[in-house]
Design a protein around this nucleic acid. Structure first.
Lengths: 155, 155
DNA sequence: TATTGTTATACTCTATAACTATA
DNA sequence: TATAGTTATAGAGTATAACAATA
């Protein structure tokens, strides 16, 4: 049942390769809904936010003009909606439509199955360790970027 | 020194968000060399291989026509080189140039610094745990895809 | 016939620069 | 003047379909 001990790749290669593995998996489930990774990420970010275009640009680390196109395409597909901001007449807020929320969930559910498969060789304790350690790395980064406490986003 | 306990995001969100964090970091160091993530990944894969175009397509999970363009642009910049395959006159092999190897290393070195920063709040034991667990997830996947033992690639 | 690689084409994604409207 | 957002433009990255050369 235990094949060979995996020689540790070291933190640098392990994190890089894991990120490619995860992005590939996410990409396949996004493609099943005819969406790209970045569109999927947009849906994930909007899951619990209604940011302005500028805030979206900061969250996605994209230029504001890139966000315009991204939101254009998502809106054309009925996944998100632009609404005027109440307090600043220059700004607009972007929010999920019901379809956008459903689509994001469908992708997430498919991804979840693959995550379970990918981690099935780990014990329950090891799974807990992995998600906890990953969470701590993310939280440290969020703190650096000045996010307030528990910030759920992506996927 | 210990801020708040990070509430565990769960495996699904933790892996997805970590992958975006890592890709963003990698992307910034790639951009410092005026390269994209996918070009950087190409350099990483070629670090210890001289695959044919078709093998490259499988490794990158891209269509062969996409790989043609990718290698075209890398070759134009002097990062890789096409050489005819000795055993099959239809096939060609792609390999790194000295510049390609240097550039890949420069990106990797920059990335390594950020990885150290991102994980500095973990104890040495925790770092070891994280890289080991990540390695095991990668190894399980590699086994599924039929790779032979220790396969170093990416970054 | 099947496989390897390229070309033609179309679309998404991205940044830069210039613009409009509001602050 | 500065900020929020869009438009125009150019280029990378991607897939599909059709092709040439070789197996």
């Amino acid at each position: 049942m235990a094949p060979d001990a995996a020689p540790d790749l070291g933190m640098v290669d392990a994190l890089a390769q894991l990120s490619f593995l995860v992005q590939g998996t996410l990409s396949r489930h996004a493609a099943a809904q005819d969406l790209s990774i970045i569109q999927t990420r947009l849906l994930g970010i909007l899951r619990d936010r209604e940011p302005t275009m500028q805030e979206l640009a900061r969250l996605l680390e994209l230029d504001k003009s890139s966000v315009t196109g991204l939101v254009d395409r998502a809106e054309k597909r009925g996944l998100v909606q632009r609404t005027p901001s109440t307090d600043d007449r220059r700004a607009i807020r972007v929010k999920l439509t019901a379809l956008g929320r459903r689509t994001g969930l469908a992708i997430r559910n498919g991804f979840q199955v693959d995550v379970a498969l990918a981690t099935q060789s780990l014990s329950e304790a090891e799974k807990k360790d992995l998600s906890t350690l990953a969470t701590r790395v993310i939280a440290a980064r969020a703190a650096e970027r000045g996010y307030t406490t528990s910030t759920k986003n992506s996927s």
